[in-house]
Design a protein around this nucleic acid. Structure first.
Lengths: 144, 144
DNA sequence: ACTGTTGTTGATAAGATCACTTTACTTTAT
DNA sequence: ATAAAGTAAAGTGATCTTATCAACAACAGT
C-alpha cells in the first residue's frame, strides 16, 4: 500500500509551482533545491506531468515550468494516477483502470470477498485524494 | 497504492481456513487448488503466517493447517502488515512502523502538507482493514 | 522399522520496478 | 554565436515480487 517516491516528488514539485502560480515560473533546480529532489529524477517526473497536460515549460534563458491549470482543478488523485497508476489496491476494483483478475477463483465479481473489502478501501482512498486539490494542498503549507 | 500478490494470496488462504475452522484441517494443496495459488509460493506465505502465530500446522498423514486464533480476532489489517509491511502510504505517517523521512524539507512534522494528507489516507485505510476480521470476510463468502 | 506423505528450509532466478545517472540534443535570449 | 536552460532517451544498480526447485526433517499408519 505504498506511495512511490515518484508520486511524492511529483506532489512536492506541483506544490512549489502552486505557491508561485500566477506570479512566476520555476526552474527545475529551484524546485529541486526547495524540495530536496534529485534534479535528474525530477526532470523525468515533470516531463510526465507535462505530457499529461498539467504543466508547461519554456526553454532558454529565463525559462522554467508553470502550472497550466488552476490549482483547484487539479486533485492529488489525478496526479498520483498519472505518476503511479490506479489508486485501487488491486486491478479488479479500479474504476479508472479496471482489469479482471485472471486467476481469481470467483467467476462472478460480486462473489469475491477480497474484491468487496478492497472496493471499500479504494473508495475511501479515492474519496480523500480526489477531493483534495493542489489549492487545498498549498493552503496547508506554512508561509515561507 | 498496490496490494501485493503475497497479501492477496495470504488473505485467500486464511479465508479457506476460516471456512473450515473448527471442522477440519486443510492441506497446502487443498488451499492452493481452491484459491488457484501456486503451491510453493503458498508454502512461503503460510510459513510467515505461522511464525506470526496466526496458524499452526500438523505433519504426516492427515496433516494440514489450522487457524489457532478465532476468526473474529484476526483483522485483515494485521494480515497485510505481516505480509506486506505497514499500511501507511509513506513511512512518516505509519503508526505501527513510523520512520521519519530523512529527505523531507520540513523539519517539523506538522508542517509537511504531504504528510498531512497521507495521514488521513492512512487512517482511512486502517479504519477499514483493522475493523474487518476474517469472520466478516467469511460471512461475505458465497456458500459452496 | 519401514514407507509414504507432509512440512521446513534455503538457494536460485526471471522479471519488474525504483530511483536515479548519463549522454546527447534542442531551443531561447542576448 | 554562444551560453543558459529545457528535452529526451537510454542505461544502471539495487531491491522487490513472484515464484521454482531441491534436499532434508518429521510424522502417521502398517
Amino acid at each position: 500500500m505504498k506511495l512511490s517516491k515518484k508520486s511524492e516528488y511529483g506532489l512536492r514539485a506541483l506544490l512549489e509551482l502552486t505557491l508561485v502560480h500566477g506570479k512566476a515560473t520555476l526552474q527545475r533546480h529551484d524546485i529541486a533545491a526547495r524540495q530536496r529532489i534529485p534534479v535528474e529524477f525530477l526532470e523525468q517526473i515533470l516531463l510526465t506531468l507535462k505530457r499529461a497536460g498539467l504543466i508547461s515549460s519554456r526553454r532558454g534563458v529565463n525559462g522554467g515550468y508553470i502550472l497550466i491549470k488552476q490549482p483547484n482543478e487539479i486533485t492529488l488523485g489525478q496526479v498520483i494516477r498519472i505518476l503511479d497508476g490506479p489508486l485501487a489496491p488491486i486491478g479488479c476494483v479500479s474504476k479508472t483502470a479496471y482489469q479482471k483478475c485472471s486467476d481469481c477463483p470467483y467467476a462472478n465479481k460480486a462473489r469475491c470477498p477480497v474484491q468487496q473489502v478492497m472496493g471499500t478501501v479504494r473508495d475511501a482512498i479515492a474519496g480523500i485524494l480526489d477531493h483534495y486539490s493542489l489549492a487545498d494542498f498549498a493552503a496547508d503549507h506554512p508561509k515561507s
